[in-house]
Write a protein that binds this DNA or RNA. Sequence first.
DNA 1: GCGATCGCTACAGAAAATGTAGTAACGGAG
DNA 2: CTCCGTTACTACATTTTCTGTAGCGATCGC
Lengths: 103, 103
Amino acid sequence: MVKRARGSRTGRPIMALLDLLGRRWVLRIVWELREEPRRFRELQDAIGASPTIVNSRLAELREAKLVELDADTGYRLTALGRELLRLFLPLHVWSEKWAKALV
Amino acid sequence: MVKRARGSRTGRPIMALLDLLGRRWVLRIVWELREEPRRFRELQDAIGASPTIVNSRLAELREAKLVELDADTGYRLTALGRELLRLFLPLHVWSEKWAKALV
DNA sequence: GCGATCGCTACAGAAAATGTAGTAACGGAG
DNA sequence: CTCCGTTACTACATTTTCTGTAGCGATCGC
């Protein structure tokens, strides 16, 4: 079942996804996990958010099956999470172009 | 100059972009503008947010040169905004797969 | 003038995020 | 066993952000 999202009550997957990804720190967390697993504190320090919110975002991402906790190595993307990340990787290149256009 | 983002103070474009897109309603607004221009109220009704926040998000998107206001037709994506949207279109398909995996 | 529509703003109350401190569980050293 | 370090995570008062509702000023057609 798709978690009914904060803003949109349609139940359409794309809306639930946009809502999830549109929460503060969520995109950033996925990004930080793109290369290797991270410990809770490590992640918290990297993004500079409070533990409260890091924890609740991780809980949401775990419920969405995009992130999982491995006791030995830390938080990491699931197979599904890596698929999503792959869709986002072009953003990195594009963001450079975008930054130039903003001058 | 890349607007220094709320959460990250690195100045790296990808961080500024993730921060911008990670603000509530931003992804949703871009999504709503994917096909045709929308009027302010139209947009507000479509996403169900308060006018205050719709206006401030639109202001941020205009400053980021992703959205512009055409007096005759309403808010619409700029060329840059359409490029960004193109990167996001695969999300629509992927979200269906994701929803199935969540059962 | 009058009404309709446009983008947008004011403001009080509600919700979410922060910053700091601390808890509970585990593992290894002495 | 006790002590120490590390882990994920929680409590809570303060601050920031968002909502919900009402309304402003400008513009257009009549």
